[in-house]
């Protein structure tokens, strides 16, 4: 791998007594689509702001395209496109005016970079004269991305671009990011949605200001390292969860969409557990082997962390 697009070393940021980012070290290769995945309060936004030169680290250092984010912030700013988590364009300006303004900020114009943003901006063209504040959520995100891309950045930093966006638009958004990656752009996107991990080349699972694991989504899933079962029953799901957790053979049990994800402490014994639960009054108990997902790994990692 040639020089990394992003490299951090022991990056730390504190707000008063709260350590928002606690000694994070990682690298992102050029042309990589890198996901920073973790719940609210994990330090995702803080990390993005540090990389975007909006904030200074209290300890450690970060570089973007080998430019230091503190000492060479002008160089970094020229090469980075940043999209904050909150819609930050001007709601009273029209779609076209917003785009033209951000092009002017970077001393370029819309026409010169239209090829890059065409797939994203295209559907918005019809609304060019509509105030940006009157767009739908997905449209706003597309406009914000267009504005972040208008100066052809080498590195794109996206802070929770899919939060508050409908599932169809989310999927569409990740397809757009994959396309940008295939054009050679380095993309770093943060998200609280674990199911979006598979869209990334590599992901960082983070919690409470620390990176728990940095790897490809598959490698993260493989690292789960023990058989996982899906547990469901006819009865009250919450009661089932509590009952399963009380069982001595169960290592962990977490509520997921339709079924609980359950791992055993030692050798898996699904039949024994099923009997015990049915003896406890649950009907139609079903335990089936399933593939661990990124969220299972995250749960496992935060467990160890506690």
């Amino acid at each position: 791998m040639n020089a990394p697009a992003i490299a951090t070393e022991n990056l730390t940021r504190r707000f008063g007594r709260l350590t928002a980012l606690d000694g994070v070290t990682f690298r992102v290769g050029r042309g990589e689509l890198f996901g920073v995945i973790g719940p609210d309060g994990a330090g995702k936004t803080t990390l993005m702001r540090l990389l975007a030169t909006l904030s200074r680290p209290d300890a450690g250092r970060a570089s973007v395209l080998e430019f230091d984010t503190v000492r060479q912030q002008a160089e970094v700013r020229r090469r980075v496109g940043y999209m904050p988590g909150r819609f930050a364009l001007y709601p009273d300006l029209t779609v076209a005016e917003n785009l033209a303004f951000f092009a002017a900020l970077y001393r370029t114009d819309v026409a010169a970079n239209y090829d890059l943003i065409a797939p994203i901006y295209g559907p918005l063209e019809r609304f060019a004269s509509r105030p940006a504040g009157k767009l739908s959520g997905g449209m706003k995100q597309k406009l914000a991305l267009s504005c972040a891309l208008i100066h052809r950045p080498d590195v794109l930093l996206l802070d929770e671009p899919t939060t508050g966006v409908d599932p169809v638009s989310r999927r569409e958004f990740w397809t757009i990011l994959a396309r940008l990656r295939s054009q050679g752009m380095t993309v770093v996107a943060s998200t609280p949605y674990m199911d979006e991990a598979s869209r990334c080349d590599r992901i960082a699972l983070c919690d409470a200001g620390r990176f728990l694991r940095v790897d490809s989504p598959d490698a993260v899933r493989r690292s789960y390292g023990r058989p996982l079962f899906g547990l469901s029953a006819a009865a009250d799901r919450h009661a089932l969860l509590l009952a399963a957790r009380r069982d001595a053979a169960v290592r962990s049990c977490y509520a997921f969409g339709n079924e609980h994800h359950l791992a055993f402490r030692d050798r898996p014994d699904p039949d024994g557990l099923r009997d015990r639960l049915e003896a406890g009054g649950f009907r139609d108990v079903c335990l089936r082997p399933i593939e661990p997902g990124v969220e299972d790994c995250f749960m496992q990692l935060t467990e160890r962390h506690d």
Partner: peptide
């Protein structure tokens, strides 16, 4: 308040 100042700050202006 709206966060657009951040966008101005990260620009080379």
């Amino acid at each position: 308040e709206t966060g657009s100042l951040d966008l101005l700050l990260v620009s080379p202006v």
